[in-house]
Structures are given as C-alpha cells and as structure tokens.
Computed example of a mutant assay.
Amino acid sequence: MKKILKYGFIAFLVIGGLFAAAYFVKSNAKSPVVYETETPFTASIEQKTVATGKVIPEDEVNIKPQISGIIEKIYLEEGDKVKAGALIAKVKVVPNEQTLNSARGRVRNAQISLNNSKIEYDRNKTLFDRGVVSSQDFNNIKLAYDQAKQELENAQSDLRIIREGSAGGSSIANTNIRATVSGTVLEIPVKEGDQVIQSNNFNDGTTIATIADLGKMIFEGKVDEAEVGKLKIGMPLKISLGAIQNKEFDAELKFVAPKGNEEQGAVQFKIEGDVYLDEDFFIRAGYSANASLVLEKKEDIMVIKEALLQFDKETDKPYVEVEVGDQKFERKDIEIGISDGINVEIVSGLTKEDKVKVWNKTEPVKNETADNQ
C-alpha cells in the first residue's frame, strides 16, 4: 500500500511538472521577428534653426524735460500718433528755495554795484564835459558802468529762469514738452502731479514719453554659439508672431553680435533683422516672435530616414544594416551629411539599390484577453 502511494505521488509530481513546463513555454513563446527594409531615395534637405526673441521698433526716442518741476498737464495718451513738435505735456516750475535765495542775492548785489557805478559815471561825465578828466579815464569809468548794467541784467535773467523756467519771462520754451520725432506714443510713464528732473551731465532725467515709428520694425533674438558661425548678413528670415496666427513675415538678417553672453550654461549671440511688414496687420512693439533661419540647403541628394541609423558604441560612428539574403543583414559603415531631423544625407557607403534594415521596429502589443478567449 505504501509503494502504491509513493509511486502515485511521484507520478503526480511528474505530471504537474509537465503541465507547468507546457504553460511556461506557451506563455513565453514569441513569433519570430520579421524585419522590414527601406531603400535610399532622393530628396531635398533644409537644415534650419529657430531663434526666439521679439519684434521691436528700430528706433525709440525718450522725451525728457529741459527743466525740473511738476507735471501740470498731459495732452496725449499712449497709442496716439504724433508729429515732431506736437505738445505732449506741460511742466510747472517749482524752484529750489536755496537756489532762489542765492539768485535774489545776486540781483541785489548787482543793483548795488550798478548804483555805485552810475554815481561815479555821472560825476566823471560832468568833469569830462568840462575838460577836467581825460578821455581815457572817462572811457574806463563808462566801461565799468556798462558792465555793471550787464551784470544786473544777467542776474535778473537767472532769477527769471529759476522762477519761471525761461529768461524771457515766459516759460513756454522750456516748460512745454514737445515731441522731437514723428511716430506713435508707446509709453507715458508719468502722470499729472509727478515730479520730474531735467536731463543733465549727472542725471539722465525723467522720461515723459517714449515715441517710435511702428512702420520700421526689427526682430531681436538670440542664437546658440553652435549655429552662429553659419549665419551671414543678408540671410532671409521667416518671422512668426505669437499674437498673429498662421502668418509669416519676411525679414533680412542685418546684425550678428561679435560677443556672446552666457545664459544658463550656454553662450548666446544677439541677432537683429529688418522685418518687412504687411499693411493688413498691425504690429505692436514687444510682440514675442520666432525667426526661422535656413542654415544650409541641399537639393536632389540621396537620403534615408534618420531612424534607420545606428551608432557604434565605441567610436560613435554611424552605420546601417543592409540585407544580403532572406532576413540576413550585415553592417555597413556610412558617412552622413546634413539632417533635418527626419531625413539624413548619405555621403558615402550606400547605393539606391541597398535594402536598409528597419532595426528599431516595435512589435504590436497582443490582446491577452482576446487570446484567452
């Protein structure tokens, strides 16, 4: 009885092992992979790069006051079109007390000097008429008198400038802020009541308004150092704006910076290009833009899909596998040229009759539920 149980247990283990092996083989069985092939073909390739940047006016002019004071009135708004000489704002002069007091003191001193010179002049003129004083002495006294009168006029003019902003007694010349160029008012960063400072050797002064001609726009962007060597002045650009969909503007490269700036570990070079505007579209200053540049172009060359390339792990040189028999392939080292990210130029190593292995083809995922059914 014990032998029967023993042999029965062994038979159970053997049968169970066979079932397990059969299930394992079935679940892991794979159909043999059949690789497809593709042949080289003729096509044209453009190697492009994209520079990000913005569209800005070619020239922007900052209007600054000729005198310090407070903005009394603003006559224009941002977006208004103006001509040179148009009135933008009016500044009310607020004189500095110390400067004003000093100017008043100068006027009083000049008046005292003039009074003294006049007394001396009148006394010597009477003597000169009698022939007592020589002509030379009288001329010197008259010169001193004339100089005293001029000094008083200068002091009074300086006092008027400090008080009113103009030596002529009218502040129109300096307190009326006018446009120096024709264009569109891009920005008025001040408001009525703001204090402004005049432009001088020690201070840029307060900007009253910024004016630019929106009919002359340029693209300003940056390119990587790996591509800047391929740029040439006069190259055509295609400008696309984020604010205007499905529209490209032609442009021409006019400037490439001689010095780059490091940004986030990469050296970037500034470029500029003249944008040819379309009258049907209004371009605002500061629109974000992308410029597409064709760095290199070749037509009617032999190419293959870039996905067919393989690279040697040691030398990093490209190669492909070419069919030499039924699903039999051998390696061929090749030399490649330019690429557009989809197709790559074949310089040497292949002919148009070669069948190149599609090595990275993915197998379709089986539906396990359907198989179980």
Results as ranks from 00 to 15, higher is better:
residue 358 V to R: 09
residue 277 L to F: 00
residue 271 I to K: 01
residue 28 N to V: 00
residue 333 D to K: 02
residue 214 L to T: 08
residue 234 G to I: 05
residue 301 I to A: 03
residue 252 E to R: 15
residue 186 L to W: 06
residue 261 N to R: 09
residue 294 V to N: 11
residue 240 S to K: 15
residue 62 N to L: 11
residue 67 I to E: 10
residue 79 G to M: 00
residue 145 Y to T: 06
residue 320 V to T: 05
residue 153 E to V: 04
residue 160 R to C: 05
residue 344 V to G: 03
residue 166 S to I: 08
residue 221 G to Q: 00
residue 33 V to D: 07
residue 251 A to P: 00
residue 316 D to R: 13
residue 85 G to S: 01
residue 43 A to L: 06
residue 169 G to P: 02
residue 343 N to P: 06
residue 80 D to Y: 00
residue 300 D to E: 14
residue 103 A to T: 09
residue 310 Q to Y: 06
residue 61 V to N: 13
residue 296 E to P: 09
residue 248 E to W: 03
residue 62 N to W: 06
residue 78 E to H: 08
residue 274 D to Y: 05
residue 324 V to C: 07
residue 140 N to Y: 13
residue 198 Q to R: 14
residue 132 V to F: 05
residue 335 E to L: 07
residue 311 F to H: 09
residue 203 N to C: 09
residue 78 E to R: 08
residue 32 P to R: 15
residue 60 E to V: 13
residue 160 R to H: 04
residue 238 K to Y: 01
residue 299 E to R: 11
residue 63 I to Q: 01
residue 40 P to R: 03
residue 263 E to A: 09
residue 346 I to K: 02
residue 140 N to R: 14
residue 354 D to L: 02
residue 327 Q to V: 08
residue 123 R to V: 09
residue 87 L to I: 13
residue 166 S to E: 10
residue 105 G to Q: 09
residue 326 D to P: 07
residue 159 L to N: 01
residue 110 A to L: 02
residue 127 L to I: 01
residue 259 K to N: 11
residue 279 E to H: 06
residue 26 K to S: 14
residue 198 Q to F: 12
residue 188 I to A: 07
residue 153 E to H: 04
residue 204 D to W: 02
residue 37 T to V: 07
residue 67 I to S: 11
residue 127 L to M: 04
residue 151 E to S: 13
residue 5 L to E: 08
residue 53 G to N: 08
residue 60 E to I: 11
residue 135 S to L: 09
residue 337 G to D: 02
residue 290 N to H: 08
residue 357 K to G: 04
residue 6 K to Y: 15
residue 159 L to Y: 02
residue 129 D to Y: 02
residue 117 S to T: 02
residue 301 I to V: 05
residue 110 A to M: 01
residue 105 G to R: 07
residue 363 E to N: 10
residue 366 K to Q: 11
residue 68 S to N: 07
residue 60 E to P: 05
residue 226 A to V: 13
residue 9 F to W: 12
residue 109 N to M: 13
residue 86 A to S: 15
residue 86 A to L: 10
residue 97 E to Y: 14
residue 142 K to A: 15
residue 68 S to K: 06
residue 228 V to A: 01
residue 288 S to D: 10
residue 245 Q to W: 04
residue 257 A to M: 00
residue 31 S to V: 10
residue 158 D to Y: 09
residue 277 L to H: 00
residue 129 D to Q: 06
residue 214 L to A: 07
residue 345 E to R: 00
residue 197 I to W: 13
residue 134 S to Y: 05
residue 84 A to D: 04
residue 237 L to Q: 04
residue 18 L to I: 15
residue 175 T to C: 03
residue 207 T to W: 07
residue 216 K to P: 09
residue 88 I to V: 12
residue 120 E to H: 12
residue 320 V to P: 04
residue 245 Q to E: 11
